[in-house]
Amino acid sequence: MGENKKNIFIYLAAVSFSILLIFLALFIGSSQINPADITAYLLNRSAVSASTAIIIGEIRLPRIILAFMVGAGLAVAGSVFQAIIRNPMVDPYIIGISAGAGTGVMLALFLGIEIAIFNFSSLPAFAFLGAVATVFTVYQLARVGNKLPVLTFLLAGVAMSFILNSLMSFLMVLRTENLQQLVYWLMGSLAGADWDDVRMITPYFLTALAVIVFYLKDLNILLLGEESAAHLGLNVERTKIILLGAASLMTAAVVSVSGSIGFIGLVVPHIARLIIGPDHRRLIPLAALFGASFLLIADTAARTIMAPMELPVGIITALAGGPYFIYLLRNKSKNIW
């Protein structure tokens, strides 16, 4: 079938583009490393000097992988939120979930609670608590009777974001010793990423991803509207809670290492949908690849534009995504799905 061929082509292109980006990102950085050395390192780790090996293996590689996970995670979470709320204007950043997760992390750091269970860091768990509490609050605030008007949902999310961001700023002022690091984290940054970060979020990330993949078909049916979905045999309330939980966990996992990076969850699902259509079984993987690539490009730019200084990558994604959000708002009446 022609359609299938087209989809295979789209995926092939997206995967090759992502792989190409990973290599490119390995080669680019503030310290000049001979491309030949990098190739040599990839072929045989002991073939290069110790410092080069550290820069590549301990600094660039974990950061690339983390950027990949964070970008993919935000895009997937964004797609899920958009399907549940049935509106393409929603993303974890705009509706305050990122801020909620961030506040959870901040509180944990501030109170000095860092419990490791079975080698799992508890930071993402706190982020998750913050995120879930925020989703719940925004949802309750926005609900009018039985309905969930998008406008009130967005406004409630923005209001919660303000409150939580102030709370985070307050906590920061109380803990002035590593202010710059916190400011960066607040704006969204992957600076200082290492393998520990990757290890920390992987179990949470994979759990959330597994749940979402399990419910891909249900996401499609939810798009028909809750009433229709229920008549098609879907347990709507339960499905919504599970999916909101999974998407919050996904957001929480990535926010706990990157801070609030905005607009990826908004822009990327939308573009992916334009290319491959609204069926989540095809959409989610493509959105994940696009999100990963998008953040990888943005982060590579963030660490090279003003090298050796670093920009918080959140600035770049917001500069790219904000106007897109405005464009979507302006075109609301048109075909945005």
Partner: peptide, 28 residues
């Protein structure tokens, strides 16, 4: 859902599935 089907008042579909996909969802 196997016994009773409902066409609700608001069937506005805000997204671009094709007709076949929509009908196939009835097999859910």
């Amino acid at each position: 859902a196997k016994k009773m089907a409902v066409v609700p008042q608001n069937t506005e579909v805000n997204f671009n599935f094709n007709v076949y996909d929509i009908i196939m969802m009835g097999r859910h």
